[in-house]
Amino acid sequence: MKKSKGRIAFEIINVIVLCTLSLVCLFPLLNILAMSFSGSSAVAAGKVLLFPVDFNLYAYEYVIGKSEFWKALLRSIQRVAIGLPLNMILTILLAYPLSKENSVFRMRTIYVWIFFFTMLFSGGLIPGYLLIQNLKLMDTIWALVLPAAVPVYNVILMLNFFRGIPHELEEAAEIDGASQWRICFQIFVPCAKPSIATLMLFSFINHWNSWFDGLIFSNFPSNYPLASFLQTVVVQRDMTLLSLEDWQSMAMISDRTVRCAQIFVGIIPIILIYPFAQKYFVQGMTVGSVKG
């Protein structure tokens, strides 16, 4: 079929619009990346757009040379190493029983409402803060990991997925004498591998990006995870944390190029796992189900 003139014009405009949108989304990130590799005078003169000018690695050398940066990075790794498995185990352990029919698990409705209610109502900032203080969890890794240990939204996603698994599988295992634990971990979990992968990616991104809890639950900046450290350096621009007193001596870097390098280092893990995340996250968007 021959395309009409209007159609061709629309398609061309559409491609242009979408290319512009893509550029608008990508430009800020590329701009930061280019500046982090550029000479400070070129950055100050506003010569850097998409490609580095006076290419150098000094800003990165500077960032990597700071012990505060490594401490914060270590804290973030610690957080993910504890928080991610904890999230996943609790999600599976909750989703499995809650995916049962009411006739099989009579308390189900009550439990579901106990968890669901936390999505509707919360104590808010101050009581949450005072609780951590009263439990003497300030400055510990547990303050960052435990309050968000039960991701209720993820539990509901998982629960809905478990419900889609054919009952016959479960019944057959039950007849063979498998316990609930075995059914959960040897039948349901292997069936749900793609969902579990999705939730792991989301849990990772969540822990990596969380900055506010690190900020308020640490009395000492030395206990900040990387995201909170970045917040103070990049947003509050607290240069004492970076101890930049010696940067004047190096002509090739400025606080601006160092900030750009910090930002980029902070998002490297996200960019690395992004291709995997993209494959899965469509499922992650659709909690609940629309029938009819």
Binding site: N209, L230, V234, R259, C260, I263, G266, I270
Partner: peptide, 13 residues
């Protein structure tokens, strides 16, 4: 997938 800390830093700049 970027946090507002990172994006805040980028937009400040």
């Amino acid at each position: 997938f970027m946090s507002w800390v990172v994006l805040g830093g980028i937009f400040h700049d």
